[in-house]
Design a binder for these strands. Sequence first.
DNA 1: GGTATTATGTCAAAAGTTCAAACAATATCC
DNA 2: GGATATTGTTTGAACTTTTGACATAATACC
Lengths: 408, 408
Amino acid sequence: MRKINPVDFTLATRGTSREINKQIALTLIREHQPISRADLARLMETSRANVTLLINQLLQDGLVREGAQASQTLRGRKPTFLYINSKKGVAVAVDVRASRTFVMITDSIGKQLGHIVSFPTKFDPDEFVKDLAVQVKKALLEFAATTECDGIGIVVPGMLDRKTGIVLHAPTLRWRNVNLAGPLMRELEDTEIHLENSGKACALSQIWSTRADGLGLNDIVYVSVSDGVGVGVVMNGELVRGKHNTAGEFGHVPLSIDGPQCSCGANGCWEAYISNPATLSRYFGRDVSSRHPQSVDVADFTIEDLITRARGSDSKALTALHSTARYLGLGMASIINSIDPSQIYIGGEITEAWDLIEAEVRAAIKERVLTIELGEVPIRIVPAVEYPRLRGAVALVTAPAFAAPKVA
Amino acid sequence: MRKINPVDFTLATRGTSREINKQIALTLIREHQPISRADLARLMETSRANVTLLINQLLQDGLVREGAQASQTLRGRKPTFLYINSKKGVAVAVDVRASRTFVMITDSIGKQLGHIVSFPTKFDPDEFVKDLAVQVKKALLEFAATTECDGIGIVVPGMLDRKTGIVLHAPTLRWRNVNLAGPLMRELEDTEIHLENSGKACALSQIWSTRADGLGLNDIVYVSVSDGVGVGVVMNGELVRGKHNTAGEFGHVPLSIDGPQCSCGANGCWEAYISNPATLSRYFGRDVSSRHPQSVDVADFTIEDLITRARGSDSKALTALHSTARYLGLGMASIINSIDPSQIYIGGEITEAWDLIEAEVRAAIKERVLTIELGEVPIRIVPAVEYPRLRGAVALVTAPAFAAPKVA
DNA sequence: GGTATTATGTCAAAAGTTCAAACAATATCC
DNA sequence: GGATATTGTTTGAACTTTTGACATAATACC
């Protein structure tokens, strides 16, 4: 039986069927483009006649466009291909992190244009907004021909209110109730701005990009390990936001309530054990988080450097990584026990050392997980070169136009 | 825009609109019965004509029946009331707990019939099934006139596979891979049996019963504190099950990975701090869980006795409760940070002492929660007299017949 | 008591969809 | 050039919601 929205009891009207089918068609075109009407009909298991009617309306709405005809077919009339109508032109993706902020331009279906630029993140919100506006404008100028912009997607390592565009709390940036969207909109002439927590955005982009695989992953978790720990959860095929859009903060679930202090103020959070600063602190034997002033050589020493040393002969570095691995696994066990996901994605610099730590992580998971099957949940590493957070930011702009992850 | 199922891309057919609207009508009738066609039309914001057509089909399907006419109306034609058609007759609800197992009979819309009976839970599965079958048969005999049974809903404190009816792991019962549904079905002549984790069932029955309030609680958590700790989570209006139906086991998320040993084998689980045995152990200063042989007087001493003493002059009892309260709050903070629910329900014996522990619980929550709003999540106590677990078991039988929580 | 008023429930035609089958438009194969 | 195959469109049937009118039934008012 068809699943209905249990919350919203708006009844189906005459147009509901078509509305539903248009959404489905649109989504399938996005996933399979270029695609002909006939192929779409087969995919949707309906008649070509129906598809024609749907497409006519989508063409009229300007959501879909016809492209070139196919060149090599065996027999019969050549199909005309359908494409998502790349509306205005470009989307801007912004990844705000404690260390640096990254900016990428893509076309409206998320294909990267030009190079990714970055600049140091200033913790002062006003200065940050000014810096960001400059960089975004500069990047957009390169594509002056298509100067119109579908929107800007910004991912932030913290909790935020999507409606007001206010960052409620971003521990690693030391931001509390910072209005980001407002000032930025003034700078950027009312371009649409989409803010989201980085973990949530990454999770969103994962279900978004993997749907075409037909894997049917309805329950996934994305864990991003960086300056802090961000987690995005998708349950029943839908991103979990919670009441205040602050759901998913597994980074601040404790491993030990008496453990080391965390940037959030509490003690023993998972983040305090596995974030990059935590690993570095373990290596140096003292707190090297940005809360404390450091000598230059220590401040410039990154987690990548530590991994390099671990691959060399620095056994202390390897030990530090192994500790992190163990804690990573123990925390993931909590996620697994409470969420029971079909798949877990892990992103962040530490994934570059996955070959060094995988066994330890897996062992720690199995140590605390409640059933054997739970201990064998597939884990997929998302390498840095895939720019998962920027992909997430892109998804914020492109995803709402389509049906799938959620049409509210 | 109407929300569509992001996973299942079956398109809308000619009959889809009616299917949807029939489900909505059915659900609304259940929530508001007795109700007239005209009232239903107002509720659904559609014409009476449309309702008539929908109801005619529901009448034909045998899902709805017409009842008496209303007696006192101000003016105009008297409405004929509509009711959910109480199909066969009765449902059986079973609450399996480490100490005792409870059995209740209800009519098909969940109204209690007769008394609740209980018997000691035998840990040997074969003996347990035999005992249970006897009690269920006996209880059903009392209602011999309506001997036909819609189904049996059984809630178990553990993880289970709903398809096979196998209890994968129930720590407090020391069950692993116990086939419950199979043997029971043989004993009870193929009556439909619905197994579910007690936390999940309680959460289900909460969204089920509170929907009529129109509160629109889409994200709720039910925490059941008893011999163990069971948690049920509803996100986006839908029960969270996960891949193996084992989601929601927050009871085994650690407070401290080096903490006391838990019945699951791991250390420092939340359950090991706040379950009834944990509280009693704290009071007696030694492990009084069922894992260890106890003197009779200690074995018979229940958490209710402890609460009574705490209300008296026994300061040790009060201290033990306060410790539990603090740990309860600290663990709830983890749930709040990761789920961000609109409301939390707490059930279990300890709720009888809520006036003694509320302040401590709330303080502990605020200690670890990431934003101020999160610290103020409403908490509703579900008293034992409401029999939340048995209500949950009932929901397993009655809920699937309707639309709302999920139509798979 | 008789009429006006009000409310419930039904009917019939209009408008919008899917669905099935026929049809027009191409293109390849022989 | 004709047979065959594939794509895309058209047409009418079947099924919905939607609208407005209408029958039914009870109270209010004079």
